[in-house]
Design a protein around this nucleic acid. Structure first.
Lengths: 207, 207
DNA sequence: GTCTATAACGAGATAGAC
DNA sequence: GTCTATCTCGTTATAGAC
């Protein structure tokens, strides 16, 4: 029976720590929050945090790991839903829009800004996050080209890179303005011009 | 004769402080460097820095002010050089490429990430920087449309916003990879697809 | 203008009791 | 697992001599 009912609370303390740390990291950057901030919000002591995450570097690794897993799940769920490449790209863009809705930056976009100050393992995980996004996008773009739904203006992998960085930049700049419309305009223009050159028959649909 | 020959040194101490602080802010973020870092690099004491810039918030304001002025000068210089809208947009993109060459992020792109932690005056200055960039880009896009050299796929001001955020994002993501080609690919794809839809006669040039 | 010395605070982290 | 108490260090900033 030892360990029979781990995680019996409604939400795990470890998870609640990660939730708070994640939000703070997305809003203030990895160097913009402290154990004291998390402790105050969860009303526990700093040493309790250190019990769960001995070092902030380790906390940071756990943060990216969970975020990347959740992101990968979201991409898998888009695939499972089926549909054309254009609708998948719109769903992809919506993930970013939802992040902005909470007045957050993408965690890994924020960590890309903090990159020079991050411990090695966190750096590697940030790179892996972008790589995974680009691989998924590349698959979707190839599907779109095969379907005849997309006409790319540049090599597939470069287009994937431009989409990732374009959406990250749209988040980065829109957030100070607190303007979701700003993000939508940049994202729509990006997808339209860069890759979602719709097949002629749907060109005037405008939806 | 008092004040007859201010700034007699080869380079002003104040300017040298700003130079070092600027580079550190662009690479590590505004919360990622300290007075001690600047002092060590210039081999002067921390209180000497405080003589020139009593508070870090003031230093930050001076940082953005000088950066924005220099940026505006660069844009004016592009205008003075004359040429078509497409070549102006390429020159604009090159400003960003040159920043990446020094392994830096755009100062205001970095400060956009740090935005929530910045003092009010710095926030305002960051917004003004993006506004000024978009105003200049809007003028260039209008020129390009008038010339018949550009065909926009979205309203002019939205296209300008997408260019700024697209280039900022391309810097943000390319920097961790240490890959200038990554930036060039994203920037080229962005300009081509978003606005620099070249007039039919130059479409196949590919230079 | 630049220095030494120091204040005042917040950071990440540990010891050890409960 | 959580706590109080504490450590050590780095941070911005000031006092006051030169």
């Amino acid at each position: 029976m030892a360990g029979a009912r781990r995680r019996s609370e409604v939400v795990d303390t470890r998870s609640r720590i990660l939730d708070v740390a994640e939000r703070l990291a997305q809003i203030r950057g990895f160097n913009g929050f402290s154990y004291a901030d998390i402790a105050a919000e969860l009303q526990i002591s700093k040493p309790s945090l250190h019990y769960h995450f001995p070092s902030k570097a380790g906390l940071g690794e756990a943060l990216i790991g969970r975020y990347a897993t959740r992101f990968a799940d979201a991409l898998e769920s888009i695939d499972d839903r089926g549909g054309g490449a254009a609708s998948k790209l719109n769903a992809y863009s919506k993930i970013y829009a939802d992040v902005l809705e909470e007045h957050r930056m993408c965690l890994c976009g924020m960590l890309a800004a903090d990159y020079e100050t991050l411990p090695g393992p966190m750096r590697d995980a940030v790179i892996r996050f972008f790589d995974a996004n680009e691989e998924w996008l590349t698959r979707v773009l190839v599907q779109g080209v095969d379907e005849g739904a997309l006409q790319l203006q540049a090599p597939t992998s470069e287009t994937a890179q431009a989409i990732v960085s374009g959406l990250e930049g749209a988040l980065l700049v829109a957030r100070p303005y607190g303007d979701a419309a700003r993000f939508r305009a940049a994202a729509a223009g990006l997808l339209r011009g860069l890759s979602v050159a719709p097949a002629p028959e749907s060109a005037a649909a405008g939806k």
